[in-house]
Design a binder for these strands. Structure first.
Lengths: 375, 375
DNA sequence: AGCTTCCGTGAATCACCCA
DNA sequence: CTGGGTGATTCACGGAAGC
């Protein structure tokens, strides 16, 4: 009753000592400097939408803050790649330090920068879990007809390392995708209409991301109460969606103007209530039930005949929850595995029994046990 | 009148001196060594499907217990990112040397390798024109429910430099995409069924690419007679499609087994005949052929009655190539659009006429015109 | 013949707890 | 850190087999 279902694939991270974090605040100044003031291993997720500005002549700054001139010829091109790489390595390094061992990173970019970002984050030890394509339903056409319509951007989702136990709300994603596994290509419209923030009639930020994108990212890879850090906060899409979904957030943003826009925006945002936040639960996240407990409770009494769906094998339930089939014995899983000669077997779905004239998987009895034993 | 419209975005490359190239041959051995024997600036396009450097753990089984046949071949094994980067830099450097100044490069990869490949090719001076996402209609699911279904691969299309005049057949792509600009995400099934090459009942190559992918690449960025080099030839998909489309090809392949499979395969491949190729050329030139030229040539004389397939509307052809229906007039496209109240209309397929007792779309007359006006 | 069902398979970085 | 036990987990398509 009243338990918020979480959707964790992995076991909860070990409880951490409380740390002092600027939750719900936008830190001014350069994001590398700002992140340096945060403690080690303190945030659950970093979502970053760094400047793409290679070859665009925009404002590209070296880590020391000096400005890189717009470039066209080859030598400068190289110098600009170098500067961009240094910048990327600097903020990714800080992000890595600030992330918990089981935390994760999302970065979004286009072909101008995403290959460099991806290679550098691999070099730093991040372990790529997926690259995700944001497929835009309404991209800007290629007016000159010289290339393919640039109709997507790329996100990289990475854990801290190969062995780290990242959060993935598999069931929530499957539910969101009409009971099919969520794929690595997401069809989402660009941000426009009422969602697009305006100041004095013009768009407040040139690259405002759609809230649907952040919604999916946060729903998929965080749980309620997790701390999300966005080093390139802009107009605060990450903060707004985090607040709505009951996640904590921290932003970094250099430009005072954007900080103002974001603050106003997030103030207006209302968290969803508890019931709306409840998501579908993965079977993996459910408490484990021993088959013996189900037998002990009398839901499947000792002596019951259980069998696979095609009735190739019939086994008898013993008092301790083990099964016997001819001379073979074992747990519901182990015996199912051995009989089939399979590498593994989920006994709950493999074995069936008759109850009230109907054939049901023994998992039905487990569900009954769970219902009866709620706290 | 009567000028054949080509679809090149850029001016034609300057005529080159003939060079001695192993056209239509598969070079054995390491591709870097093999490419070293090719002259500078001699090929128009490089298409490369390098090893992805997958780093797989143990065995993987499906929920039904069956085993997943993973790519564990020795050619995909690298000891470190450094080793993979060195390998990548080596083959890209040779590819760059062999490419003409206005040539272009395609590389396909997954998140395991594509970020490293992309960053290195940028470092070498290649200029990325698009990243293209191959969205698989039927990818393998994520059996354990631990990530998003990895449902796409990424291609990078790059020219030799920012100023180089690459080939892009905009019109052909727009036609292929139902009169919409071709986007950077391509929906194509994985290679299976009859197209999937088998030897002794098992797949000949673990990573055979679909011909539709190569078809689109070659149709978009080469013209008839261009030389296409594939340094990782495998079972020769590039060669087969190149031959079909009237492009010249050169392959490199280390494994004798694959060379044998590819040779047999390409021998069986028949080039599309002139008329089919012409059809394609005309298709891409579609709107550029004035209906007036077809009328002027007498293929559809002024006064001819044209009508839509269901004969809801009948119009009369005027001498200048415009159409009249009651009081409405316009081009074949404009009038068709207006009568239907549609946002757009391809008049070539909308309007029909009678010829020799048969009803044909007026596009048939355009095909005849193109055949008669070939150079 | 035609329809349905079953089965195989594809570039995959594919579990986690506890002793 | 390793090993062993429990138990969670799949989509589209083509071809064969069954009806």
């Amino acid at each position: 009753m009243g338990v918020i279902e979480t959707t964790k694939v992995r076991a909860r991270r070990a409880p951490e000592a409380p740390v002092d974090l600027p939750i719900g605040r936008i830190l001014p100044g350069d994001c590398v400097e700002a992140m340096r003031r945060l403690p080690d291993a303190s945030v659950d997720l970093v979502f970053a939408d760094p400047p793409y500005n290679l070859q665009l002549g925009g404002d590209l700054n070296r880590p020391d803050g000096s400005h890189v001139d717009a470039v066209t010829d080859h030598w400068d091109q190289f110098s600009s790649f170098k500067a961009y790489d240094d910048f990327t390595r600097a903020w990714l390094t800080e992000a890595r330090r600030v992330l918990k061992p089981d935390g994760a990173l999302w970065v979004i970019g286009s072909y101008h920068n995403i290959f460099r970002v991806g290679a550098i984050l691999q070099d730093l030890g991040f372990w790529i879990l997926n690259d995700v394509v944001w497929r835009k339903t309404n991209p800007m056409p290629n007016f000159k007809g010289t290339r393919f319509t640039n109709a997507h951007e790329t996100l990289i989702w990475a854990s801290m390392g190969e062995k780290s136990r990242y959060q993935f709300n598999y069931r929530a994603m499957k539910t969101l995708n009409d009971e099919l596994q969520m794929r690595s290509d997401w069809v989402i419209p660009i941000c426009s209409g009422a969602e697009r923030l305006k100041e004095n009639g013009t768009k407040a930020h040139p690259t405002q991301k759609p809230e649907a994108l952040l919604y999916r990212v946060l729903l998929a890879t965080t749980e309620k109460g997790d701390v999300v850090l966005d080093p390139f906060f802009g107009t605060g899409t990450t903060g707004a969606v985090a607040k709505r979904l009951g996640r904590e957030w921290i932003g970094c943003e250099r430009e005072e103007f954007y900080r103002g826009v974001a603050t106003k925006r997030i103030e207006k945002e209302l968290p969803l209530d508890e019931s709306a936040l409840t998501t579908m639960q993965s079977a993996r996240a459910a408490p484990k039930v021993a088959f013996g407990a189900v037998v002990e409770a009398g839901l499947i009494p000792p002596g019951t005949q259980v069998f696979d769906k095609k009735r190739r094998w019939v086994a008898t339930v013993r008092a301790d929850g083990s099964l016997v089939h001819e001379k073979a014995t074992g747990s519901i899983h182990g015996l199912g595995k051995d009989l089939q000669g399979a590498p593994s077997c989920n006994g709950w779905s493999f074995w069936h029994f008759e109850r009230g004239g109907k054939v049901e998987p023994i998992d039905a009895a487990r569900q009954d046990w769970l219902l009866a034993n709620e706290d």
